[in-house]
Simulated scan of single mutants.
Amino acid sequence: MTKPHAVIIGGGVAGLAAAWWLDKAGWQSTIIERAKSLRNRGYMVSLTGLGYETVKKMDLYDRLKAISYTIDENIYKNSKGKELIRLHYRDFVNDLPYLAVSRSDLVTVLANALPVGAKLCPDTHVLTLEKSADGYKIELNNHDILHCDMVLGCDGLRSSLRQQYFDKDGKSLQPLGYCFAVYDINHVKDFDYDFLSYVEPRHFAEYYSLHDGKLAALHIWRDERSNPHITADGYQLLKQIVRGSNRQVRDLLSIAQKEKAPILVDSLTMVDLPQWYNGKMLLLGDAAHCLTLISGQGAGMALASTEMLGMALAKYQNIEQAFTVHDRQLRPIIKRLQERTRKMAPMFVPATAFTFHLRNIVLKFMPKSWLYHYFTNAVKSEIALTHSL
């Protein structure tokens, strides 16, 4: 008997994980990835709660654990180099199990775990997508024609599938008032703690060492425009942002620019869609419900949502019924996470000197038990909510 066929658009965390869970549900899949190679840039992600449970069910825990990072101490300094706060990650998670991995490592592990029934097609994109009697007919840029029973849109925050079929006016995009940039630097870590962060009103820069010896950099800065223009020259933009920052921040940026290190620049924008599926087409991950890095749950929820989909497809032969069950399970969790992100966003990188100093004082003197209970109770409630549905 021929297995049903899904075309997955996007070879990131959601797309690769979806192929794995579809295989468990008795499906075959083709993953269409526009880039010539899998994503090799991105920030650190922490897998806790539902995302952590999903990678264990996929038997990926040992592989991810072997390449995970130890996160203990994060030192926050101001633009003059004075230490402001010293935070320990364990103050947030205590005994809650977690994995800290780079997004690129997570993508690599997922790609290496692809089942035989999943075909990955890099350097490929969709030219035309038409409904057929029993699914969809898709023409690719290499002139291949695919026939499939279902289409999954896993093409990220800037999803072309979402824009074409779900949100032509872009009303689902909700900028949080920030932009971010990530890049790697050929520079050996010269600090003893795991993370070094330079913070100032309207800007935040964080550095940590990668397994290959490079230094990873993450910048986040305020930009309250509803549609911030992201220039093609990310380094020139960042030079303006960091002109009043600590000397080390400016020097490391100059090193990366001279090396012509690839840089990713974008806005922190949530996606809030009232409908994630349309017929036999479904959006997953950031394409459906981007949470932004403020939530700390984007990659984990992308993984968990693909598990929910796979389990629903295994139980229900009707695709749209499976989509309905997936929506009913996932939406309350996403809604809660997005509400939390909206509340946290104003204090993430304070806009004024007053709110900046107030935030630092609160973090410095707040009992660590409060941080622990807030974070762990939120994660445990999401797990409990899923298990109750």
Rank of each mutant, 00 (worst) to 15 (best):
N94I: 03
G26R: 12
L38C: 07
L50P: 02
F354R: 07
R39E: 04
N278V: 00
S209M: 12
L50Y: 06
H143F: 06
L389H: 07
H229C: 04
P4Q: 11
P350C: 04
L152P: 15
L157G: 01
H143G: 03
I145G: 05
A261H: 04
Y43S: 12
Q174C: 09
G285V: 04
H373W: 14
H88R: 13
A181D: 01
G10A: 04
A19I: 06
Q236V: 03
P122N: 15
G15V: 04
L282R: 02
A378I: 03
D272L: 03
E259P: 05
M308R: 02
K258T: 06
Y89Q: 14
L99V: 06
L283A: 08
A288E: 06
Y165V: 04
I333F: 09
V151H: 01
T70H: 07
V116N: 15
T2Y: 04
V199P: 00
F180N: 00
S226E: 12
H147F: 10
G10L: 08
D327K: 12
G213D: 08
V116T: 15
D251S: 13
G81P: 15
L157Q: 11
N318Q: 10
V45N: 06
V182T: 06
L273D: 02
S254W: 03
G12F: 03
T306N: 09
G234M: 00
V116I: 13
M270L: 08
L268H: 00
E73M: 05
E33V: 09
V107R: 05
L161R: 07
G135K: 05
S104M: 11
P97I: 10
I31L: 08
D134I: 09
C148V: 08
R63S: 11
G234P: 00
K214G: 05
F375T: 15
N40S: 05
T324Q: 07
M347R: 01
A133V: 08
K368C: 07
T108D: 13
E53C: 07
A314N: 13
M1C: 07
G153K: 06
R250A: 13
Q164G: 10
L282A: 06
R202N: 14
M58I: 12
G11C: 07
M311K: 13
D169S: 12
P97N: 13
F354Q: 11
Q275G: 01
Y372G: 08
R158Q: 11
D59Q: 14
L87P: 05
L371G: 15
Y178I: 04
P97T: 14
K119Q: 15
G117F: 01
K364N: 14
C121D: 14
V349Y: 01
M1E: 13
Q240K: 14
K239Q: 15
K260M: 09
N112T: 14
Y98G: 08
R158P: 02
S209Q: 14
G49D: 10
K119G: 10
L385C: 08
S160M: 05
L50W: 03
H147K: 14
A304E: 05
V101W: 12
Q163Y: 00
D266C: 02
T292L: 09
L196P: 01
V349M: 00
P346T: 04
F365P: 05
G135P: 07
G135H: 03
Y193A: 09
P115V: 11
P262A: 02
L99H: 09
H125D: 11
L176R: 02
F365E: 08
Y207P: 12
L110R: 13
Q236N: 12
V265T: 11
C179D: 04
V7S: 10
L120P: 01
